[in-house]
Nucleic acid binder design. Structure first.
Length: 843
RNA sequence: GCCGGGAUGGUGGAAUUGGUAGACACAAGGGACUUAAAAUCCCUCGAUUAUUGCAAUCGUGCGGGUUCAAAUCCCGCUCCCGGUACCA
C-alpha cells in the first residue's frame, strides 16, 4: 500500500501504470488517467476527412455551459458515446463532436450577481465542463469543438439572416408579442408554456412591439410532409407532437355580410366543415374581436363580459373544465347562400389567435356548438343525415360525414362532395374560398437581451432596415459590457449603437436586439461537419460526407422547440444554396433517441429540491467507467432512470469481478484430456452472447439488456475451470470477446483488461467480435415438454432428432410419462429448439 | 376531451415479437473465510399448499375471447405517466 502511494506521487503516468507491474486490484482512477492519455496520443477519437470507410455521424445535444455537468448530461453523453464507440469498432468513420450552446440568459444573471462580464463567466464554465467531459472518457473529436458565442460561429448566422431578408423570409413586424417582465424580453409562441414563461414560470403579458420574424409558416407544409420520412427513425410521440404543433386544417373561408347597424362590411370565418354551411344558426366571435368591441360600446353588460373573458386563464386544466359562456351582440350577419339573418354572439371559447377569431356555429353537427345552443336556446338545424339510419338531433350533435338535407340545391350530396360544391359556390359568388389553415406561427427571433448574437441590421432614417453587408460581418458583440438587469447594456454603448448607413452613409443606428438562442442551436449540427470553414457557413463537400446526422440523442423536452427549428433551419440552408438535398438531405436528423429523465426518489433531480447527485462525487469514488456502466444498465435509454446508490456499487462490483477473471490465466495447465462438453458449452455461451449484444446495438439500443448479457458471460467464465490448453484457449477467447464488447460501455477498463490479456490493439479500436456459427451448433439440445400446454418436464435429444424421436424420448421420461397414462395423444407440436407440446384426451 | 406510452416479484427491469414468465442486477435472509470488520465466495429468494423426498395449484392491472400454446393477438374496462389545440 505504501509503495503504491509513493508511486502515485512520483513519476509520469506511463511509469506508474505499466501492465508489467501487474496491479492485483482494480483502481479506476489510475486506469482511467492512463488510457485517456494514450487515446489522446493515438488520436483515436478524431473523425477522418480522408477515409474510404463509411461515415457515421452520432450527435448528442450540446450543453449550455451552466458550470457543472448534471446526471442528465452524463446519461445523454454516455448513450452517445456508446453508439459512437460501437460504430467505430464496426469499422465506420465516426463523427462524434461536442460544443457549447453558449449564449443565453443565465450568463447575464451571473454577470449581474458577480459583477463580471458574461463572456468571462461563460468561458470559465466551458473550461470546467470540458474537463468533466474529458474525465468521463467521452470519445469526442475535440478538434471540432465550437462555442456559439464566438464570432466565428455567429457570423454565419448573421450572414444567413441577411440572405433571409433578401428573400423576404425574415421580416420586421409590429405585433402583439409575449413579454416576460423578469426576463425583460419577448418570447416565441413555443416558449410560452401554459401562459407562463418556459424559463422562469412568470405569467406572460401581451405587449405591442416591433420585432423580427422568420417565415417558418412558408415551410409549414414541408415540415409536416417530411415528418413521414422520419417515421421509424424518430419516436412516434415526437412526430405526433410536431404534427399537432403545425396543426394543419383543411377547409374554407366564408364571408358573412354584416348589417348596416353592425358597421357593414363582412365577418370572415374559417371552417373545416363547409358542407354544414346551410345549418348555421348563429355566429360566434372572440372577446377580442373588433365586432365585439363595437357591440360593447353601448352595452355595459357586454363590456363587462368581454372584460371577464380577457382575464380567463389559458391553463389547460382550467380550459378543460371551463364553462362555455356567451352573450348576444345584438348584431346580425347575412348567410351568403340562404340570405337568412343569423345573430352574432360573443363566446369565450372562440380564440382571437386562431383563424379569423370568428366562427360559424352549426349546433346540429358540432358538439360544442350544440351545447352552447342548448344552453342559450338557439335553434338547431340538421343539414347532414346519416347514410343509414335516423338521428335524434335534439339529443346530440351528429358530427360524422353523411348526406346533405335541408340544404336546397346541395341536397343529396355526400359530405365529401358537398365540401367541394359549396366551396365552389362561395368562390364563384365572391363569398369565400378554399383555405388551408395552420396553427404554426412565424418564428419571433428578436430578443431584448445583451448576451446573444447581434441582429445584423442598421436602421437608417431614409433607407429603413438595411442588412449589414458580408464584408462587415460579423457584427461582433462587445464582450466587455456589464448587464444591470434592466435594458440591454447595448442601448448605452454608443460605439456599437451609432454607425453610418451602409447604403447612403448618413448617421444611422444599429439594431440593438439579439437573436433568440434557438437560432444558434438550429444549425450547429451542420457546422460540425466543417467547423473551421472560413469561406461559408458550411462546406458542401463536408455536408456530403457527414450529413445528415445518423443518430441524434437528447432530451424529449426539445420535441417541439429545438427539433422543429432545426428541421426548419436545415431546409433554409438547403434553399439558400449551401448544400443540395442530395448533399445534406432534406432532414437534419434521420434517427432520434429521446432519453428519459434521471430521477431521485421518483422526482426529477433539481437543485431546488436538493435531490441531486453530483457526477464528480461518483467519479471520485468509483471512477468514470462505473458511472457510465450504471447509467446504461439501470434502465432502457428512453425510460426514466431512478438513481440508486447501491446499484452503482453493484456496477462497480461487476467490474471488479471481471478484473479477477484475469487471475485464471496464470493457473498452470497441462496437456490433459479436457472436458469437451464444458469447453463446447463455454464457446456456445461466448458466441450466443456476441449475437445477443450485437442485436441489442442494431435494434433499438437496449443497452441494459446488452450489459446483462455481458454479466451473464462473465458469470459463465467465472464458473469455468480451464483444465488443459483447449480449455484455456476457450477461456481466453471468452475473456477477449467480453473485453471487446465491454469497450463501448467502459472503455478505460476494457483497454486495461485488453492490455493485460495481451491483445494486439487497444480494445477501443479493436474489431467488434464476430459470431462463429459453428460454435452455436449444439450436438444435443434440451427441449421443454408440455402436456396440454403445461410444462411437465424436459428431454435432451440429438439436434437432428425428428418429431417421432422427440416423442419417444418424452414418453420414456417418467416425469412426463405419468401425465400420459390412460391418455391418447391426439396432436404433437414440435417447435424446433424450444419445446414439444403433446395434446391428449382420455383413451 | 384528444394523441402517445405504460401496468410483470420487495425494487430496477428481462422474455429471441405467439413457444419453458421472472434473464441480469439491487435489496433481504442464511452460510463460509476473519480475533473482528471490510472485501470476497456459496446458498435461498412470485404466491399458496404439501414435504423425509418427489411435487401440485395459482400467477404478468381487471373481465371475456381466439389458440395445441397468450405478458405478447382480439373485444370490453380500470388506473398511471407524458404531451396537448375549446383549433372552428
Amino acid at each position: 500500500m505504501l509503495a503504491r502511494e509513493l508511486d502515485m506521487r512520483s513519476g509520469s503516468v506511463s511509469e506508474q501504470f505499466s501492465a508489467e507491474q501487474g496491479e492485483a486490484e482494480y483502481h479506476a482512477a489510475d486506469v482511467e488517467a492512463k488510457w485517456q492519455q494514450r487515446w489522446q496520443v493515438a488520436g483515436v477519437d478524431a473523425a477522418s476527412e480522408d477515409s474510404d470507410r463509411e461515415s457515421y455521424y452520432c450527435l448528442v445535444m450540446f450543453p449550455y455551459p451552466s458550470g457543472n455537468l448534471h446526471m442528465g448530461h452524463v446519461r445523454n453523453y454516455c448513450l452517445g458515446d456508446v453508439v459512437a464507440r460501437y460504430k467505430r469498432m464496426r469499422g465506420f468513420n465516426v463523427l462524434h463532436p461536442i460544443g457549447w450552446d453558449a449564449f443565453g440568459l443565465p450568463a447575464e444573471n451571473a454577470a449581474i450577481k458577480h459583477q463580471r462580464p458574461p463572456a468571462e463567466w461563460t468561458y470559465a464554465n466551458i473550461d470546467q465542463m470540458r474537463a468533466q467531459l474529458k474525465r468521463l472518457g467521452f470519445s469526442y473529436d475535440w478538434s471540432r469543438e465550437i462555442a456559439t458565442c464566438h464570432p466565428d460561429y455567429y457570423r454565419w448566422e448573421q450572414w444567413m439572416f441577411t440572405r433571409l431578408m433578401e428573400r423576404g423570409l425574415a421580416y420586421q413586424s409590429d405585433a402583439e408579442v409575449n413579454w416576460c417582465e423578469p426576463c425583460h424580453t419577448v418570447l416565441a409562441n413555443e416558449q410560452v408554456v401554459d401562459g407562463v414563461c418556459w424559463r422562469c414560470d412568470t405569467p406572460v403579458v401581451r405587449k405591442n412591439l416591433k420585432q423580427w420574424f422568420i417565415r417558418i409558416t412558408d415551410y409549414a407544409e414541408e415540415l409536416l410532409a417530411d415528418l413521414d420520412q422520419l417515421v421509424g427513425g424518430w419516436p412516434e410521440k415526437v412526430i405526433g407532437m410536431q404534427r399537432n404543433w403545425i396543426g394543419k386544417s383543411t377547409g374554407a373561408t366564408v364571408a358573412f355580410a354584416l348589417e348596416e347597424r353592425a358597421g357593414g362590411g363582412q365577418l370572415e370565418i374559417f371552417t373545416t366543415r363547409p358542407d354544414t354551411l346551410m345549418g348555421v344558426t348563429y355566429m360566434a366571435v372572440a372577446a377580442g374581436h373588433p365586432l365585439a368591441a363595437k357591440a360593447a360600446e353601448n352595452n355595459p353588460e357586454l363590456a363587462a363580459f368581454i372584460e371577464a373573458c380577457s382575464k380567463i386563464s389559458t391553463k389547460e386544466a382550467d380550459v378543460e373544465t371551463m364553462e362555455k359562456r356567451g352573450m348576444a351582440t345584438g348584431f346580425f350577419a347575412i348567410h351568403p347562400i340562404s340570405g337568412e339573418r343569423v345573430p352574432v354572439w360573443v363566446a369565450n371559447f372562440v380564440l382571437m389567435g386562431y383563424g379569423t377569431g370568428a366562427v360559424m356555429s352549426v349546433p346540429a353537427h358540432d358538439q360544442r356548438d350544440f351545447e352552447f345552443a342548448k344552453k342559450y336556446d338557439l335553434p338547431i338545424k340538421q343539414v347532414i343525415a346519416p347514410v343509414d339510419g335516423a338521428w335524434d338531433i335534439e339529443a346530440a350533435a351528429f358530427t360524422e360525414a353523411g348526406l346533405l338535407i335541408n340544404s336546397g340545391e346541395f341536397d343529396g350530396l355526400s359530405s365529401h362532395d358537398a365540401k367541394a360544391a359549396i366551396t365552389d359556390w362561395l368562390k364563384a359568388h365572391g363569398a369565400g374560398d378554399a383555405r388551408v389553415q395552420y396553427r404554426l406561427r412565424d418564428w419571433l427571433v428578436s430578443r431584448q437581451r445583451y448576451w446573444g448574437a447581434p441582429i445584423p441590421v442598421i436602421h437608417c432614417p431614409d433607407c429603413g432596415a438595411v442588412p449589414v453587408s458580408d464584408e462587415q460581418l460579423p457584427v461582433a458583440l462587445p464582450t466587455d459590457l456589464q448587464p444591470t438587469g434592466g435594458a440591454s447594456p447595448l442601448v448605452d454603448c454608443d460605439a456599437f449603437r451609432y454607425v453610418d448607413c451602409p447604403q447612403c452613409g448618413q448617421p444611422a443606428e444599429r439594431e440593438l436586439d439579439t437573436f433568440d438562442t434557438f437560432m444558434e442551436s438550429s444549425w450547429y449540427m451542420n457546422r460540425y461537419t466543417s467547423p473551421r470553414h472560413g469561406e461559408a457557413m458550411v462546406d458542401a463537400a463536408a455536408m456530403r460526407r457527414w450529413a445528415p446526422v445518423d443518430q441524434y440523442i437528447g432530451g424529449v423536452e426539445h420535441a417541439v422547440l429545438h427539433l422543429l427549428y432545426a428541421r426548419f433551419y436545415h431546409k433554409l440552408m438547403r434553399d439558400v444554396g449551401l448544400f443540395t438535398s442530395e448533399e445534406g438531405g432534406d432532414e437534419p436528423f434521420t434517427h432520434l433517441l429521446t432519453q428519459g429523465m434521471v430521477l431521485m426518489d421518483g422526482a426529477k433531480m433539481s437543485k431546488s429540491k436538493g435531490n441531486t447527485v453530483d457526477p464528480n462525487a461518483i467519479i471520485a469514488r468509483f471512477g468514470a467507467d462505473t458511472a457510465r456502466l450504471f447509467t446504461l444498465f439501470a434502465a432502457p435509454p428512453e425510460k426514466e432512470l431512478e438513481w440508486n446508490d447501491s446499484a452503482v456499487e453493484g456496477a462497480h462490483r461487476f467490474l471488479k469481478r471481471v478484473w479477477r477473471l484475469l487471475d485464471k490465466l496464470d493457473a498452470p495447465v497441462a496437456e490433459v484430456a479436457e472436458d469437451a462438453r464444458a469447453v463446447k458449452a463455454l464457446r456456445l455461451a461466448i458466441h450466443s452472447t456476441i449475437e445477443k449484444v450485437t442485436h441489442a446495438f442494431e435494434h433499438g439500443f437496449a443497452f441494459n439488456v446488452a450489459i446483462a448479457g455481458l454479466m451473464e458471460l462473465s458469470n459463465q467464465l467465472q464458473a469455468f475451470a480451464p483444465q488443459g490448453t483447449a480449455g484455456l484457449a476457450a477461456y481466453r477467447e471468452g475473456l477477449e470477446a467480453l473485453t471487446r464488447m465491454l469497450a463501448p460501455f467502459v472503455p478505460h477498463f476494457a483497454c486495461e483488461i485488453g492490455e493485460r490479456l495481451g491483445m494486439e490493439k487497444m480494445a477501443v479500436v479493436a474489431d467488434w467480435p464476430t459470431v462463429d456459427a459453428a460454435a452455436l451448433v449444439q450436438d444435443e439440445i434440451t427441449l421443454a415438454v408440455q402436456v396440454q400446454g403445461k410444462r411437465r418436464g424436459e428431454i435432451t435429444i440429438s439436434k437432428d432428432a425428428d418429431q417421432d424421436a422427440a416423442l419417444a424420448a418424452a414418453q420414456a421420461e417418467p416425469a412426463i410419462a405419468k401425465w400420459l397414462e390412460g391418455m391418447q395423444i391426439v396432436k404433437v407440436i414440435l417447435v424446433p429448439g424450444r419445446l414439444l407440446n403433446l395434446v391428449v384426451k382420455p383413451a
